[in-house]
Structure formats: C-alpha cells, structure tokens
C-alpha cells in the first residue's frame, strides 16, 4: 500500500516556525511507523531527527503522537492507522528538533517521587532476601511495567498546563513503591503526592490509561493512591 506520511519538522538553526513535510512511501500493512521514519531518514532526508533505541517496545524512547494519539512508533502498525499517517512530537515538552523533545521536566518530576526502593531496616536473620508473598508481589505488578516513555504524562491536560505537575508516570512509580510490602518510605512519598503540584492535579481524565503502550491501568493506580491518602491503607 502507499502511505502518505506527514511529519512535524522543526530545525531551530534554520526554521523560525515549525512546519510539516509529507513523504509518500510504499509500505506493508504490518510495517511499523518506526520503519517508515527509518526509511525516510535512511533514503530520503537524513536530517530528520527522532529518538529510538530498542525498536521493540522496551526502552521507551520513541514515544510520538501518531494520528493524534500517543504511542510508541515501534509498536504502531501501519494497518492500524491507514494510508494517511501524521507523526508529531509528544505534547507539553519543548521541541528540540523535529520529533525530539526535551524530556528534562518529565524526569525532574519522576525524580521527585524518590523512584527507588527504600528500606533501612536490617536484613532478615538469615542475611538473605526480604521475603514477599505472591499476593504481596501481585499488588503492584501492573505498575512495574512502566518503561518511562512519557506517553501518559504528555497526554495529560494537567501536565500540558504546567510542567510542575508530577504527572501520571511519576505517580505510577509512586504506586509501584508505596504498595510494595518491602518498601518503607510510603509516608514520605504520600507527603510528596499531597503537595499542590501532586495528586490533586489529577482530574481523572483517563488520557494516560488510553495512551499507555504497556496497558498499565494508570487512572486506577492513581485512584488507589488517592484512597491510600484518605484511608492510610497500603494493602
């Protein structure tokens, strides 16, 4: 099939304003949007800039807005988008060049939530691992799947409004640690979530859940955090 690929372009060295460039490509329905971008970059216009690394939906570096919806280009099949495909950078972050955005505000928010395991108690008597039941592990299994691609955070209107907002990705990480029976910093994390730029900015829009390429139930996870704040129950 012939695909018309419309790509957002902006080169800060030359362009005063962003523009769209259109490319016509022959593609298989099972090709991925990333394949099309690679083809443009390899054969038509080497100056096209975009991020990608694993090409298998694991590294989270090629989050893009494809036909208006945030997805990973490496997981987006041409057949799901049709003959006209528009590719734009994810929203709410400054464009550096073409499809590349400045991820700093995203990672700054991620860092705020202390995205690491905290447990200062001495190890169990046998000096080995801190044990956890299958149910306890299951409790936060969904939120361990996050690959930090930013599809969720950059689909959230509250984040578009302000970079200060923690955003769904940071809250998914908060969920992952707060509900981990081995972690001891739930209190600290809940304090961070309760700040004005924290969980109160979530208006349950569900964009994050729809955008997540890992199908994490993000809005549900945020709802569980809200409940934990009100009830104190971390089970």
């Amino acid at each position: 099939m012939e695909v018309t690929l419309k790509v957002f372009r902006f080169n800060p060295d030359v362009d005063k304003k962003w523009r769209y460039e259109t490319y016509k490509l022959e593609a298989d329905p099972t090709d991925r949007v990333l394949d099309l971008l690679e083809r443009v970059k390899g054969y038509t216009d080497g100056s096209l800039a975009f991020r990608r690394s694993c090409a298998h939906g694991v590294c989270g570096s090629d989050a893009l807005r494809i036909n208006g919806k945030n997805s990973l280009a490496c997981k987006a099949l041409v057949r799901d988008y049709g003959e006209k495909i528009t590719v734009e950078p994810i929203m709410g972050l400054k464009v550096i060049k073409d499809l590349i955005v400045d991820m700093k505000p995203f990672f700054d928010n991620y860092k705020k939530i202390l995205p690491f395991f905290i447990n200062d108690s001495p190890l169990p008597a046998d000096g080995k691992e801190r044990r956890q039941s299958i149910e306890q592990r299951e409790r936060f299994d969904d939120t361990t799947k996050c690959i930090l691609c930013a599809c969720c955070t950059t689909s959230c209107p509250s984040f578009w409004a302000s970079d200060d907002y923690l955003g769904p990705a940071a809250m998914v990480t908060a969920h992952r640690f707060i509900f981990d029976s081995r972690d001891e910093s739930a209190s600290e994390r809940l304090h961070i979530l309760s700040e004005t730029s924290g969980i109160a900015r979530c208006h349950t829009v569900f964009n994050c859940t729809m955008a997540c390429p890992r199908e994490i139930q993000i809005t549900k996870a945020i709802g569980e955090l809200k409940l934990a704040m009100v009830t104190g129950n971390l089970e």
């Binding site: 029976s181 739930a186 209190s187 809940l190 304090h191 961070i192 979530l193 309760s194 700040e195 004005t196 924290g198 969980i199 109160a200 809200k226 934990a228 704040m229 009100v230 009830t231 104190g232 129950n233 971390l234 089970e235």
Partner: peptide, 21 residues
Amino acid sequence: MKRTLPISKRGLNFETIMWFF
C-alpha cells in the same frame, strides 16, 4: 502485618482535605 499509615504520616494538608471535602 497490616500496612496502614496514621493520619500524621500521610501528608494531610489543605489539598488533601479539600479533595475529600
């Protein structure tokens, strides 16, 4: 052991109270 946090340990500030309100 049940994991629960008392009110003083979960950042009960204006924002949270108003969310509840």
